[in-house]
Structure formats: C-alpha cells, structure tokens
Design a protein around this nucleic acid. Structure first.
Lengths: 212, 212
DNA sequence: AAGTGGTCTAGACCACGCG
DNA sequence: GCGTGGTCTAGACCACTTT
C-alpha cells in the first residue's frame, strides 16, 4: 500500500513480453482502482478505503475489506422484454423473447444492490442459477460459454425507491436510490446483457475510475 | 448515424500513421459514446438519444441535440479545504490553501448540474473566471497552462437535495439528486482537481461508457 | 478469399522525477 | 544521467464477418 509496482520494463522482462502488453494489463488495474501511474516515478499501489463499494464493467468486485455475496431472488425465466430497459434493442432482440433474473448483492449483512438482468434468447440459451460458476453469471459466461464482456454503457440516475426496491434493500419507500442502467457488450455477436441496478449508496458509494 | 466509419487500415493510410495510433484515437470516441466497434464488421456510428446528458472525464460535452451552458456562480477564491471532498489529500495539498469556485450547468433553460471545484494553490495559481478560455476551465488549463487531464476517479451517490442545491437547480429540498465526487488527475505533477457535482437526473441522466 | 477489428512483438524517442 | 512512464512506428498473426 502506497508502495510502487516494479517498472514496466521489469515486468516485460520477467514475463517475456513487451511493454505494450504490460501496459495493457496495468490499464485494467487502473480501471479497477488498484493503482495509479505517476509519470517518471512508477505505478503506485492505492490504499483501498474500507467504506467503498466498487463497480467494474464486469459487475462487482470485492475490496480487501469485504466480500460481495450474491443471492438470486428471481430465477432466470423466459419472458417478454421490460420497457424499463433504457437502451434501444436491436431488431433481433425485439423479435426474440428474453431471459430475466434478479439478484441482490450483500456486503456483510447488508443488502446493497438490487439487480435486474435481461438477455436475448436468440443469442444465448437460458442458464439456471444452479449452473452459475461460483454463483457468478459472468464467470459462467466466461468459463462455460467463452463469452467475454467487451464493454459497457451506463446511465446513472438518482430516483426515489419504490416498494420492491425498498423492501429488498431494507430502506424506506421514497428514499433516494442510485439507479444504474447498463448495457454490456460481449464478444458473442448479437449478445448484449442489460442490467437495471438499484444501489443503496448510503454506506457504499459506487466508484468508477478511468485513465489515459 | 447507424453507418460505419472507414476501417482502421484506411485511417492509418489516410493520416500516414499506424493502426495502433488510429485505435487509440477511436478509443476516445468509444469512451465518449460516439461509436462502437464490431469485430469483423467495423466501427459503427451511434445514434445520440436526444434526452441524454453526458459526462466524460474532461467534464461535460454537448450532444448534437443540445449545448451545455455554464454560469460561474461563485468566483474562484482562495480558501480552506472543504471536508466534503471525499478523497484523501496529499500532504502537499493539506499543507496548502486551495482555490474554490462554483458553477451551474444549463441545458436549454434548465439548471441541471451544480458543480463545486477545488484545486491546491501549491500546484497552480488562481485563475479568474474572466480568463477562462471560451468560459471553460478545462480549456484554459489545456491551452494556457498546457495541463491535460490524464484520468479521473468518481464516486456516485444518490442523496437528498439540500437547500443550496435545491435552490440552484430549481427543485425541492429533499428531492433525490445524484452526487458525484471526482478527482481529476493531471499531467502537472502534484495537481489534482477535485469536484463535487449535484446532478438533476430527472431529464438528463449521466452517461458513461467503456470499452476494451 | 478478402476485409474487418483484436492482440501481440520489437524497438524507438520523448517528458518527467530524482539523485 | 538514468530510470520511469507516455507515445509512436512497423509489422505480424488471429478471430470474426461478409461475399
């Protein structure tokens, strides 16, 4: 913590690769908030504030201070698209049914995020939650289907919690809540994952970082 | 709109540069939400939804449908650091005074964002708002001081609007509001810019995108 | 087969920080 | 001066899409 990583040249020698490739790897660490680069000095390892909840494009990840536990509250089932999705669907998606499921993310004993997810049936079969690798949908996609997340678009809004959200997150109806609408793009052509997240940011704000 | 850009090879020929460099430029367009890449097909130009407010690491930018107008509501002045800043200051920053100013961002006639900004006096002199190039603080840094934004970290929270925020944004006290705490890192060593933004997302959600 | 983006190697030069 | 990260050239090979 507060110390510096080996230099890019050191890494490229050590792993028999080029600086370009090392830099690509470091960019990932930067985006996830683990390091910052300092021109002329090196890559500094950051202290992780213990009250921070974190979001990456691939979902949530754990800081060293807490683990995110996920509970599936609605099993994946085939249904119609929900107009709450903020992104325009492709024609193939509109003409297909979709798979919908719902999860709640916990930190310690606290429900922090209620997450709705959809994807188009034309691009990917339904996956039961029992089949989730280590309980993770994204890990399942990666390991069982060789599908990777290639990017995402997110819309942030502050809204008042409605009944369902309030109940799941243990807050009052009308409390301010952070709504994040996400479209994940994937390495499988035609497959997008849509998410609608309600985050109780009172204790765990959502963090994003960006470099270059 | 909906059409494709010339290929990366075309661009690299046309501008006498390499594909690597072209790809870096395209990454910028991706992050700002102008294009998406489709493997094997090309770089697709996106339609811009007209109700979208957008945020990049460099501040706000305009979609084709509206311009963001900025009004300085509190002139830059030298003061003490405000504990509302969510990020740990460096020792040099803590030991220095800071420059603080406040702006309101308008879209059409609507006040949409109230923005507080701070930076450390030890790293940059005070800049009067009359000196802002085209009214923009970031443009001033870039053009007059050769300081570029190299990255940022953002924390998102949904909160209730307090008096000052409500008054400036024309909403009621207690209404849900999106608070974004930002630290911008810059190419000038030791200079960070801190921001505390209150966004009325009712009509203009904040958008982010990410690739690779 | 041809064209696209995705990834990688190899190497150069520059700007910044520090002793 | 030297080591660091920042940027760029030049070129290779692969995976995906379309014809």
């Amino acid at each position: 913590m507060g110390s510096y990583l080996p230099s890019e040249n050191d890494f490229s020698e050590q792993f028999n690769t080029t600086r370009t490739t090392v830099r690509r790897a470091l960019e990932e660490l930067i985006r996830e908030g683990y390091i910052v680069k300092e021109h002329g000095k090196g890559s500094k390892v950051l202290e992780r504030s213990k009250f921070l909840g974190l979001l990456t494009v691939k979902g949530f990840y754990e800081s060293s201070d807490f683990k995110v536990r996920t509970v599936v509250t609605k099993e994946p089932k085939i249904t119609q698209w929900d107009p709450i999705i903020e992104f325009p669907l492709t024609e193939e998606e509109r003409n297909s049914e979709c798979v919908y499921f719902q999860r709640v993310r916990y930190i310690h004993k606290n429900a922090v995020v209620l997450e709705n997810n959809w994807y188009s049936l034309h691009a990917l079969e339904p996956i039961k939650s029992e089949e989730f690798v280590e309980g993770s949908f994204f890990k399942t996609l990666s390991q069982e289907y060789l599908i990777e997340i290639t990017g995402s678009e997110q819309e942030f809004r502050a809204v008042r919690a409605l009944e369902e959200v309030a109940k799941n997150l243990g807050i009052a109806v009308g409390d301010p809540i952070l709504q994040i609408c996400i479209r994940f793009r994937t390495s499988r052509s035609g497959l997008n994952l849509y998410g609608n997240l309600y985050c109780n940011t009172a204790d765990y704000p959502i963090r994003n970082s960006y470099f270059l």
